[in-house]
Design a protein around this nucleic acid. Structure first.
Length: 386
DNA sequence: GGGGATGCGTCGCAGACTGA
DNA sequence: TCAGTCTGCGACGCATCCCC
């Protein structure tokens, strides 16, 4: 079996600059298992066979790299450590691009998937993020120290968000050719937020590891034959008996139900998703809770979400509710109101017409954000304030 | 300085509203 | 009915941030 998920590879590189022709001069790697435990570290200076660029930043001198290996001499060691792991870095696009350039020079394909960017998670510079999270400040611009700092940030933030590796990664990784279900509109199912609500109250780390893999394999709600084969392989490697695998499936299914019921409502969409998961896991679909009588398809409108309004809502009494009134109701009910639809600070758009073609609605679709009807929003507000 | 993402401000357009 | 005003929205450009 070529592909599997072994946890995270947190990377940091020091380079000669930003450009297409710049080179990596130092790399630090911290390898974590699926429970964020450090299992290996790797660091090496690299002789770029050219000038070292901003020495005043990375403090690496020609004398230091004179006896260092070139990238092609350490490429295999790096590739083996990154392979089958979710790549993590502070400003991931930069590190990924620099590594890709190095591997491309060797004629090798470098496709680690989208990975996790701790800069995106924190919106702060590395030292500031460490300070904010009460983590030890890194020896900045030392590759391994920065990678360790990024690993600490990941470890600190991910569990607090109850996120498994699959949910953190949020995208198909480089591991398997996966099925990826799309709805009629061509958009991806908005599962990530729902999955992030899951909590597995289980002390057996082998089961938790298996559930992590299950979560990753099932976030498209289907188990392809490759995924099924891989899960069987992983269960065997973890030493799980058939009854323990069954228990893991049961735990996962119950956790999904708990996640779906967390807002007090089982929507039609959640019912359909739970049914799909039950089928994939060989669990009787009779056990899937029926949709709530009042449940509309609320997609991802969850208390605490950051929401943005578009359009003017006319109530059943014919009175127009201003945006200020809607925003006030939202704030009082526990939502966070944002003015604009952005990738990072907006979870959901509340629209008078969910099929709206307003700019905000369009941007929400572009970003894969759910668009919820104003009626559904008001229904939730009334439930909260009842 | 390169590249990419994000946030914010400005401008113009269209529709709704208001008062004469 | 018409003109003026207000509001929401889209488009665009610019600034900022972050990595070395």
């Amino acid at each position: 079996m070529k592909s599997r998920c072994d946890g995270y590879a947190v990377v940091d590189v020091e380079t000669t600059g930003f450009g297409k022709h710049d080179r990596v001069v130092e790399i630090g790697l911290v390898l974590l298992d699926a429970r964020y435990r450090v299992v290996d570290e790797f660091e090496t200076l690299i002789d770029p066979r050219r000038d070292l660029g901003p020495t005043h930043i990375h403090r690496i001198t020609p004398a230091m790299v004179s006896a260092a290996p070139t990238f092609d001499e350490v490429a295999v060691a790096i590739a083996r450590r990154i392979e089958n792991r979710v790549l993590v870095a502070h400003n991931l696009p930069f590190d990924r691009r620099m590594l890709a350039q190095e591997f491309q020079r060797l004629g090798a394909d470098f496709n680690p998937g989208l990975g996790v960017c701790t800069l995106k998670l924190t919106n702060q510079k590395l030292p500031v993020a460490c300070q904010s999270l009460n983590l030890p400040p890194p020896v900045h611009h030392r590759a391994l120290a920065d990678a360790r700092a990024s690993a600490s940030i990941l470890k600190t933030l991910a569990p607090s968000q109850q996120q498994t590796p699959a949910a953190v990664c949020n995208v198909p990784g480089p591991f398997l050719q996966r099925t990826h279900r799309r709805c009629a509109t061509g958009e991806t199912q908005p599962m990530s937020r729902w999955l992030s609500r899951l909590v597995f109250d289980e002390g057996d780390t082998r089961l938790v590891q298996y559930i992590d893999l299950l979560d990753w394999a099932l976030d498209d709600l289907e188990l392809s034959s490759d995924e099924q084969t891989y899960l069987n392989y992983s269960a065997e490697e973890l030493g799980l008996r058939p009854d323990e695998v069954e228990r893991a499936h049961e735990l996962y299914f119950l956790s999904m139900i708990a996640g779906a019921e967390k807002d007090g409502v089982i929507t039609q969409q959640e019912h359909a998703d739970l049914t799909a998961v039950a089928s994939a896991l060989g669990i009787s679909t009779d056990r899937v809770p029926k949709p709530s009588a009042s449940a509309h398809d609320s997609q991802d409108l969850v208390l605490g979400s950051a929401i943005c309004f578009t359009g003017n809502y006319i109530g059943t009494d014919g009175r127009r509710l201003s945006k200020a009134e809607l925003e006030s109701m939202a704030t009082q009910s526990g939502f966070t109101v944002v003015a604009n639809v952005t990738k990072s600070k907006c979870d959901c758009v509340v629209a008078v017409d969910p099929n709206s073609s307003s700019g905000k609605a369009k941007r929400a679709r572009d970003y894969g954000k759910p668009i919820v009807a104003a009626e559904r929003f008001l229904e939730i507000v009334m439930q909260v304030n009842a």
